[in-house]
């Protein structure tokens, strides 16, 4: 087996006096979309924050392409090739759309072809390129947050609930964009509550509960097994169709 791009082994995270992650073991293979599912409060966002070094793991290790980054500083982790789209967007509202994108480009300049590709995914961003990001609608802000992550190719994209609270048309736009990103050969770790979106995008899946991974396997397997879904996620696909 080849080395996975990202692997967490026995990761514990404490925030203040709360013990949030209780030994997370997670493997993200190179290429494709790994879905991280689970009910609210299961520890999905905490897992992403721990990977980024925004919260420090108190035990266990985080390995990126064979290199231990458990104790690395957040900027160093980001520079080693991770793009992070936090929950509730995380754009810079005072800056323009363009400035937001330039900030994410390591060279300080946006590659013209890449920008064209991003505009193709999210046409609204082209229209509002010089507008303050704070003036965008919720869906457009989410598009900007994702555009900022993908404005340059990265080894791994961590995306936290990109479809949360968005209108169905925009959700469809998001799914299409991730499909295209995936087709370009990218590796994505995607946290999602929307099971339909998860099923549409995921290759592999990990389900969290109570700060642990309780199931890992192929997405298709989980999608076909209504009983497993019900046990892990407390839902059935029928309700979502």
């Amino acid at each position: 087996m080849t080395t996975p791009l990202l692997s967490l082994s026995g990761v514990h995270t404490h925030v203040g006096r709360y013990h949030i992650l209780h030994g997370v073991d997670l493997v993200v293979p190179v290429g494709g979309v790994t879905m991280l599912l689970g009910r609210n409060g299961a520890g999905k966002t905490s897992t992403l924050r721990t990977i980024m070094g925004l919260w420090r793991a108190s035990a266990g290790s985080v390995t990126l392409a064979g290199e231990d980054v458990t104790q690395a500083a957040t900027p160093a982790i980001a520079r080693s090739g991770l793009a992070y789209v936090p929950e509730n967007m995380g754009i810079f509202a005072d800056l323009t759309v363009r400035e937001n994108l330039v900030l994410a480009a390591r060279s300080g300049e946006i590659d013209a072809d890449r920008l064209k590709w991003v505009f193709g995914l999210f046409p609204a961003l082209e229209k509002f390129f010089s507008l303050a990001a704070g003036a965008l609608s919720g869906g457009q802000k989410q598009m900007l947050a994702i555009a900022r992550a993908i404005i340059e190719p990265r080894r791994l994209y961590l995306v936290d609930e990109p479809t949360k609270g968005l209108a169905p048309a925009i959700v469809a736009n998001m799914i299409a964009a991730f499909r295209e990103l995936k087709a370009s050969g990218a590796t994505i770790l995607l946290v999602e509550q929307n099971f339909a979106a998860a099923r549409a995008l995921g290759d592999t899946v990990a389900v969290m509960d109570d700060g642990r991974i309780v199931h890992a396997g192929a997405m298709a397997e989980l999608a076909d097994d209504a009983e497993l879904q019900h046990r892990l996620l407390g839902l059935s696909l029928a309700k979502h169709q």
Partner: peptide
């Protein structure tokens, strides 16, 4: 934190 997550020290 967002700035750090983009790689800025």
């Amino acid at each position: 934190f967002r700035a750090e997550a983009l790689g800025y020290r």
